[in-house]
Design a protein around this nucleic acid. Structure first.
Lengths: 234, 234
DNA sequence: GCAAATTAATGATTTATTCAAG
DNA sequence: CTTGAATAAATCATTAATTTGC
């Protein structure tokens, strides 16, 4: 059921574990770049698209919330403790930072940032819902599938820079967390990050840091067939 | 404020009128193709992007609904008329067909379908939320803007096939509703339309008609400049 | 044991709500 | 105050677990 004619993504156990670990490590709403990286990595363990990653985090976060809300409601009803029932929801997005979760095994995971971004945007972009659905990984790409998709206002373009012949028969050990992804992502017009929100931490207003990466003269010559739009970059 | 440094779309009066007319003529959730056509047309009257069109319909529909809901609530509270308060919401998406709106001036507009699509999907695709954010119109395109965006699972690619030099100083009469759009759109992978819904009419279950357009070997050779995916950024 | 029938999880969409520019 | 834009909540739909009758 999982392969072929299936209509919806069916995550492999490994993919699931990795996603879970990322979630536990604090990732909630990965930005476009992060989604690309995650997708690239997870593609080593099965077919996956950017949108799957996006939806997974969306759903996981939402269901975490409602689970907690439900639990909270019950507690309140049963114990009639009237203290502190307001602020709690604000911590839902960064449970790792919340004392309320310290007792859970995984929140104490000392695993560092799984995606050591260029480090510049990381903070500012945390809450921005900008995504790019991108190609499947070249080698696994279904003939007619690859295409670019974005959500929000952050636009990405994925470029295959001659991905090596790493049909790599998984000599990879357990979750090689960081590894040069099979695809290079190219951020085009990251744009100003308007409407940043702060749900997690204190409500310090982050004043919309602009984090554009300017590309000089990317001569786009699309000779692609289906999957590609491989903008061959010189 | 409207030009240059503005961060959000500022519709011109003409654009607004046209959108309104389309809305009144029954368009609620235009599909990707329709959005392209609309965008192309409206671009004659000012800068506009596909997403603007998309959002406009989204918001207009939503606010129409809530306005009506509010009105309805008041009526019910004030008049205590208990009749017919259930079915009403079902008509909100096709108010033109609802007797409740016949008294409004514009719903009687006899304007025909503004976008005489190929006619095949029109019905089935009515409720599918597939969109593509596309380029600005070539001539007005901001240097760094052009890019492809999609929402949902319907993917489009817009290609400028040598848009003419119609810098046309608006010799255009009143809302030339149908005219060959300045851009040609190229649908890539329309895909199967699962989960079609019927909101407007009776709830006959439309058994998910599959309307994929299979393109064999679309040798996409985009050498375009203009609207282009010109990623060339100085 | 083993399918058909139910129920629970969860991937994917759509609608409602909120934010903020003007 | 209006409304374009963005996000979160609700909902739909499909797949997997689980139960049930044989």
């Amino acid at each position: 059921m999982s392969p072929a004619g299936s209509t919806r993504w069916c995550p492999t156990p490994q993919q699931l574990m990795m996603l879970d670990e990322m979630y536990r490590s604090g990732i909630r709403t990965p930005n476009a770049t992060q989604i690309q990286q995650i997708t690239s990595q997870l593609s080593l363990y099965g077919k996956i698209e950017g949108k799957n990653v996006f939806y997974w985090f969306q759903n996981h976060k939402a269901r975490d919330r409602q689970k907690l809300r439900k639990k909270l409601t019950r507690q309140l009803q049963h114990q009639q403790q009237l203290y502190h029932h307001h602020q709690l929801l604000h911590y839902l997005d960064s449970p790792a930072a919340s004392p309320a979760f310290r007792h859970l095994p995984y929140y104490n995971s000392t695993s560092p940032n799984l995606f050591p971004q260029t480090g510049i945007h990381d903070e500012a972009a945390k809450q921005v819902m900008n995504y790019a659905w991108n190609f499947d990984i070249p080698e696994r790409v279904d003939k007619n599938k690859g295409m670019m998709r974005t959500y929000g206002c952050d636009w990405l373009m994925m470029v295959d820079v001659g991905s090596p012949s790493s049909s790599s028969s998984s000599s990879s050990p357990c979750y090689p967390m960081i590894s040069r992804p099979p695809l290079k992502t190219l951020e085009l017009f990251p744009l100003t990050a308007s409407n940043l929100k702060e749900e997690c931490n204190g409500n310090d207003n982050i004043n919309s840091t602009d984090f554009s990466i300017s590309l000089s003269s990317l001569s786009c010559n699309i000779t692609g067939t289906a999957a590609k739009i491989t903008l061959s970059i010189p």
